[in-house]
């Protein structure tokens, strides 16, 4: 608990504002075959904030974040009910293509997953598939995205090298830059630091703070200190339900549900 408290005192208090909703989830249910993985989820996620999703393994937090860009549908036998409104439009609508949704919502995965291509081609991949061919524009996008992911200085002289030659932490920032290159509105991060060392983790956390000025960020994390350090709002998931969703400060200092308190004080999970 002590570490969490020190982290909290360092952070500026969250101001109550009337920010717009970016994702409004209403009565979302999801099944993997017979397994009821998400139960009646209601969440109102605001723009330009960092929303952390915490909870023990198997609680449905990764499933939820993958539902937000409908990547969860790659798993056969997934069924959903309810609504997720992204900018007031239901993402499950028949005429809402997943490709369109995913150009507005970027994703960073648990394990760094750059393509086995050059650093430049990794970043230019998104813009290229969306039809940008102009070399000059691509060059600018690559530089802007790499600067945005705070890795430009490290790689600017080796853009032609294979992205696999970078360290794990650098690869993950390449993946963040790759997500930025399609200029998304939201960035989903599914435990982005779980495969990284502490220093790389710190760099990514600093980066998240920078990015929230321009993007709405939803981050799943196993690490409660990380949620406390970097998020504005925190949702606590347990067994497929949202137990508590509130300002991060409130969740970590004065949770209203006993189960939340037990979890953040390390009594289970």
């Amino acid at each position: 608990m002590t570490t969490i408290k020190t982290a909290l005192t360092k952070k500026e208090p969250v101001q109550k504002t009337d920010k717009k909703s970016v994702y409004l989830t209403k009565q979302l249910n999801l099944w993997y075959g017979d397994n009821h993985a998400l139960k009646n989820i209601d969440l109102d996620i605001k723009e330009n904030e960092v929303t952390a999703i915490i909870g023990p393994s198997g609680c449905g937090k990764s499933t939820y974040i993958k539902t937000l860009n409908r990547m969860v549908e790659l798993v056969p036998s997934v069924k959903t009910s309810g609504q997720i409104l992204y900018r007031d439009r239901n993402i499950f609508d028949k005429d809402y293509g997943v490709e369109e949704l995913r150009t507005r919502v970027g994703m960073v995965f648990q394990k760094p997953n750059p393509f086995p291509k050059s650093i430049y081609d990794n970043i230019a991949y998104g813009p290229r598939i969306h039809g940008i061919k102009n070399k000059k524009i691509l060059n600018e996008i690559v530089e802007k995205s790499l600067r945005g992911a705070a890795i430009w200085e490290e790689v600017k002289d080796r853009l032609d090298e294979n992205a696999y030659s970078l360290s794990g932490g650098q690869q993950q920032r390449i993946c963040i830059a790759r997500a930025l290159a399609i200029e998304p509105d939201v960035i989903l991060m599914d435990e982005p630091t779980s495969a990284l060392d502490p220093i790389s983790t710190l760099k990514i956390e600093e980066l998240v703070q920078e990015l929230k000025k321009d993007y709405s960020i939803i981050i799943v994390t196993h690490n409660m200190q990380q949620a406390a350090r970097i998020s504005d709002k925190t949702a606590f998931f347990l067994n497929g339900e949202v137990i508590e969703y509130d300002d991060t400060d409130t969740i970590f200092s004065n949770p209203s549900d006993k189960r939340t308190e037990d979890y953040i004080s390390g009594r289970f999970g």
Partner: peptide
Amino acid sequence: PKELRDASLGMGATKWQTVVN
């Protein structure tokens, strides 16, 4: 690796673009 597919599809690429690229 499945991760490469996810990365491509997650950026809004179609299945065909993912297969070819």
